[in-house]
Design a protein around this nucleic acid. Structure first.
Lengths: 104, 104
DNA sequence: AGTGATACCTCGCATGTCGAGGTATAGGGA
DNA sequence: TCCCTATACCTCGACATGCGAGGTATCACT
C-alpha cells in the first residue's frame, strides 16, 4: 500500500491552502511531471481526507467560479508526518531490494 | 499505480529461480524488513504473472513437500526492466515533491 | 455562436492489498 | 502417542486505491 495521492496532497497543503484544480497542476509540477493525479482521483480523495478530519474546506467565489480551498488541520499535519515516514520506509526498502545482488 | 509486490518478485527471480514460500522470506530480508508480502498477496500475484507469461512454474517435491519454483521468461525480464524504470520515475517524483519548498 | 480553459462533481470498473481461513507434510518435544 | 511449530501450497471476501469517461457551469476569446 502507498496512497501516493494522499501523501502528495497533504504535502502541498502543508505549505499553504490551495483549491482542487490548483492542486492537480501543482502535483504535476512538483513531481517534475512524473505523476499526474486525475480529477477522478483528486476530488474523491479530498472529500475522504476532509471527512477524516485531516483537511478543512472553505468555499470561495473567485471571478464568478466557485473554488474549494483546503487547508491542513492539526491532525492532518500529524498524519502527514506519519505517512511521510511510511513512504521513506517503503521506498527505501524497495530501493534496497533493487540494488541487493541477493546471492550475497 | 505501483504494484510493489510484482516488482519485488520479478526482481528476486531475475537472480535465480525460487519458490513461493522462499520468495516471501526473501522479500522481507532484501527490503530490510520494510516490506512483507503476505501469502494472500503472494500466491495470487504469482499466478497472475505466470498467466501473463512473465513467469514459468515448475513443480518439484523436496523432503516430501511440494514446491513450485518460478523463473523469469524473456518477456518477464523485459517487463521487469519497464516497471523498474516506472518505479524510479514515480519514487523520484514523490521525493522531489517532498523536498520541494513549493513557494519557490 | 463556438471553443478552450477553469472549476467542481460522480459513476463504474479494474487492480492491488489484507486477513482469515483451509489443506497437508515433516520434525521435534512432552 | 500427541501436539505444536515450521514448511508449503491455496482460496475467499472485503476494502482501498486508481482510472477514464462523463456531467455541470462559468469566463474569455474569437
Amino acid at each position: 500500500m502507498s496512497g501516493i495521492s494522499e501523501l502528495l496532497l497533504l504535502r502541498l497543503l502543508a505549505e499553504r491552502q490551495m483549491y482542487g484544480y490548483e492542486l492537480a497542476r501543482a502535483i504535476r509540477s512538483t513531481t517534475r511531471h512524473a505523476i499526474s493525479v486525475g480529477e477522478g482521483v483528486l476530488y474523491p480523495v479530498l472529500h475522504t481526507l476532509e471527512r477524516r478530519g485531516w483537511l478543512k474546506a472553505r468555499r470561495r467565489i473567485v471571478n464568478g467560479r466557485t473554488r474549494v480551498y483546503y487547508s491542513l488541520t492539526r491532525g492532518g499535519r500529524r498524519h502527514l508526518k506519519k505517512i511521510t515516514l511510511d513512504w521513506r520506509r517503503i521506498s527505501g526498502g524497495v530501493d534496497a531490494a533493487l540494488l541487493d545482488p541477493r546471492y550475497a
